[in-house]
Design a protein around this nucleic acid. Structure first.
Length: 777
DNA sequence: TGCGCTAAATTTTTT
DNA sequence: ATTTAGCGCA
């Protein structure tokens, strides 16, 4: 029993409040005044602007505990929404720590999508669905769109299904039904057919009794709008509403929230505009910036006391993010020690970057730091490979977070498709996926025929197959194969109620020949795939039945990860949001990669600001040590590209950042040669003139090879005292100078910008390189 | 129908 | 460089 259970019984009575006030419950201890305001301001709309590391989750969970402790609402009258299953799970666990089993009763704690699915299943018929509708994932969605495109005779080469899917997702993210898509946009795909294709796709979904992820929200919105009584019911039910990571909401989610919260208006949104990094998938920072207008009378609480990072780290992060416009503006502070300054290191190339970081980690390890408290945060997932290779080489345990997820692996999706066919005979997409996996001689011709027949008779493929095998339409061989497949499914389906789902799954996979297919496969991954299938069957045991399991996998695309050995975490910056580590490595701070070129090209200034927020998220993950790196050469798509330091490096305050030489920089010449010997920029023939010159050049030590800490020249800048990584007192080369570069060979300087030179290389073409990597040629 | 080749496309990721 | 999808040929 917890210390405030005593207060719970009398719902919202004044007596309960008085008691609570008189005897301050222990769960409020240790909250700072702002956190306490976030917890205790129960009536009306509240926006909690919670900076990184300011105890946001604590405030949120304590608020829930507080509501229940005061008896203001029961667990099932509180709606608590998160974005990810992980966040939902964490919130449930932490509420549980405060109120004990009371958290179990929180049936409305979950992701936007899970809660929407729950509501939709209850009222499915009101939006033209059956309660057992299937939830399609991205893969199914694209395959279905491909069919729609083909049916419309649209060249899916020129108009790829993936692109249409993105457009439709975009519309759904903005809460637009086909009829509501602005005319200009509706015409923007396949010679004006975009909107029509969207409508056709929605029709197909209804026929399949299926929804995609976007529909979960969109159809719930429609349900609420078209059925005020249903909406009123939920508005009344949810006495308190809490939303986590509000800065990540898209328009559909925003509208959803507005509708559902209009009843009692006790809505509390928690977020940080500086950590909005999902604009590219429809999130609207504006939602949080506009909160006060949307919810008049809203109380704003700012959490600015940071409990996570040391002073220098916080100063660096704050200074960096201050370059963004359009912020609500928070000033994070800490009473903690200044700690170590974040470091900035320039390295020759991405391989050296991995090497240096690996060595640094080993050194920390020797000093007794746990690998669990160390993370490498990259901008793009291709950067991970270099670290993986290096860590395997030196035997450093690591863990990749966010790679292809369990339920997205091909073998798991195949297995699930079999199970979906058993549980839901009308699941055409699933049936099509496995009809010829393993190969049973049922190719395009057969599928085409099934489609035709199914469409003509308005029946699912499985049923079409059942009829078709009784006719002469098919050639004997496919006919026999299809007949036995249909019979198999009927047999399995009859066992649904009599056999535990995991045993049934095992049986289906064996008897269909699916497991055999992988046993016969001699590629190195086959063993792992069989292992995954076993894991799948094991995971099924924990569910009451097949339907429950299928619902779980469609919404929760992840499995628990084992934590038996301490490992370094390697993940993208996006995946790192919400996490914290003692030591954080931030490699790849180079123009083009971070900020990512594409983000700049497509989103312009907004894109740049989002990238900068991502940098801010990265730095603020660090509790005690942040180490930033940039390389001068990076292999992108197999080609070595010269790179220049990120503008974010210039956004760091020099007072709080220490510039550190890479260990190898002092022996740069010799090192570069050995490194260079592995490359074959000029072909593998080491006797070519280019190679000889490169070698000669590299062994000649140069005056100032890798130093970024040259005397700082003041450049016109908005903010004083920044690290000037690209500064240069005197340009050594002018336009027209002949120069030589280790990787690109001889060339002519075309333009000079600070210490960056644009050079027309004789062989490699025009590149921008750092002046310090050039020598007179 | 199935295999093997060529060609194209490669930011971020949840649900 | 690597992977994947689509196409053409056996």
């Amino acid at each position: 029993m917890t210390d405030f259970d005593d207060y719970a019984p009398q719902a919202g009575g004044l007596a309960a409040r008085a008691a609570a006030a008189a005897q301050r419950p222990r769960y409020l201890d240790g909250l700072n005044p702002e956190q306490r305001a976030a917890v205790e301001t129960l009536d009306g709309p509240v926006l909690v602007l919670a900076g990184a590391g300011t105890g946001k989750t604590r405030a949120l969970t304590t608020r829930i505990a507080h509501i229940m402790a005061l008896g203001q609402a029961r667990a099932y009258e509180i709606l608590a929404v998160t974005f990810t299953n992980k966040a939902a799970r964490e919130m449930r666990e932490r509420v549980e720590m405060l109120v004990g089993d009371g958290a179990q009763a929180m049936q409305w704690l979950g992701t936007f999508h899970a809660i929407s699915a729950k509501i939709l299943r209850r009222h499915a018929e009101l939006v033209g669905l059956k309660p057992n509708f299937t939830i399609l994932d991205t893969d199914d969605q694209i395959r279905l769109l491909k069919q729609v495109l083909q049916a419309e005779n649209i060249d899916d080469k020129r108009w790829p299904a993936r692109a249409l899917a993105m457009r439709i997702d975009g519309w759904k993210n903005r809460g637009l039904l086909p009829a509501q898509v602005p005319a200009g946009e509706a015409e923007s795909f396949a010679n004006g057919k975009g909107g029509a294709l969207y409508a056709l796709y929605q029709e197909r979904l209804k026929i399949l009794n299926a929804v995609d992820f976007g529909d979960l929200l969109l159809e719930t919105l429609r349900l609420f709008r078209e059925n005020p009584d249903v909406l009123a019911d939920y508005q009344k039910r949810f006495k308190y509403i809490l939303v986590d990571e509000y800065q990540d909401t898209n328009v559909a989610q925003y509208l959803w929230l507005r509708l559902i919260s209009q009843g009692r208006r006790n809505v509390c949104c928690v977020g940080d505009d500086d950590q909005s990094v999902y604009g590219w998938r429809g999130a609207e920072v504006e939602n949080i910036l506009r909160f006060e207008q949307d919810f008049p009378g809203a109380k704003i609480v700012r959490l600015e006391r940071n409990y996570r990072s040391t002073g220098h780290i916080l100063a660096a992060a704050s200074h960096l993010i201050a370059h963004n416009e359009g912020r609500l503006g928070k000033t994070l502070f800490t009473d903690g020690e200044e700690g170590e300054k974040p470091t900035l290191t320039g390295v020759w190339d991405s391989q050296e970057e991995a090497r240096v970081i690996g060595e640094d980690i080993e050194q920390l390890q020797r000093k007794g730091h746990s690998l669990e408290e160390i993370a490498i945060l990259v901008r793009a997932s291709f950067q991970m490979r270099e670290f993986e290779e290096r860590f395997v080489e030196i035997g450093l345990p690591y863990r990749i977070i966010g790679g292809p997820r369990f339920y997205e692996r091909a073998e798991i999706r195949d297995a699930l498709a079999y199970l979906r066919c058993v549980g839901q005979p009308s699941d055409d997409l699933a049936f099509e996926r496995i009809i010829n996996t393993p190969k049973r001689g049922l190719g395009d011709a057969t599928v085409q025929l099934l489609h035709e027949y199914g469409r003509r008779e308005r029946i699912p493929l499985m049923q079409a197959a059942r009829f078709l095998v009784e006719t002469e339409e098919l050639k004997p061989k496919p006919r026999g194969a299809l007949k036995s497949l249909v019979a198999d499914f009927e047999r399995w389906r009859n066992l649904i109620d009599s056999k535990p789902q995991h045993e049934l799954a095992e049986m289906v996979l064996d008897e269909s020949g699916y497991t055999q297919m992988w046993r016969d496969d001699k590629t190195p991954e086959a063993a792992g795939r069989l292992e995954n299938l076993k894991e799948l069957v094991r995971a099924m045991e924990e569910f009451p039945d097949l339907a429950a399991f299928l619902e779980h996998v469609s919404l929760v695309m992840e499995t628990e990860e084992s934590k038996e050995q301490a490992r370094v975490s390697v993940m993208t910056l996006h995946a790192a949001k919400g996490l914290e580590f003692e030591t954080v490595y931030l490699p790849g701070w180079e123009e083009g990669l971070f900020p990512h070129q594409r983000s700049l090209d497509e989103q312009g200034r907004a894109g740049l600001e989002e990238e900068r927020r991502l940098a801010y998220v990265g730095v603020t993950r660090a509790k005690r040590r942040a180490r930033i790196f940039f390389a001068s050469n990076r292999r992108i798509r197999g080609l070595w590209q010269p790179t220049v330091p990120s503008r974010f490096v210039d956004n760091l305050p020099s007072d709080h950042v220490e510039v550190v030489e890479a260990p190898s920089a002092s022996q740069y010449g010799g090192y570069a040669v050995s490194r260079f010997a592995n490359l074959d920029v000029y072909g593998s023939d080491y006797s070519t003139p280019g190679w000889k010159r490169a070698k000669a050049g590299a062994t000649t030590p140069r005056a100032e090879p890798m130093r970024e800490s040259r005397p700082r020249a003041k450049q016109p800048m908005t903010i004083e005292g920044e690290v000037v990584a690209r500064s240069s007192t005197n340009a050594r080369y002018g336009a027209g100078s002949r120069v030589f570069h280790l990787k690109f060979g001889p060339g002519t300087v075309a333009a000079v910008d600070g210490n960056k030179c644009t050079v027309d290389f004789d062989k490699a073409g025009r590149k921008m390189v750092l002046e310090s990597f050039l020598q007179a040629g």
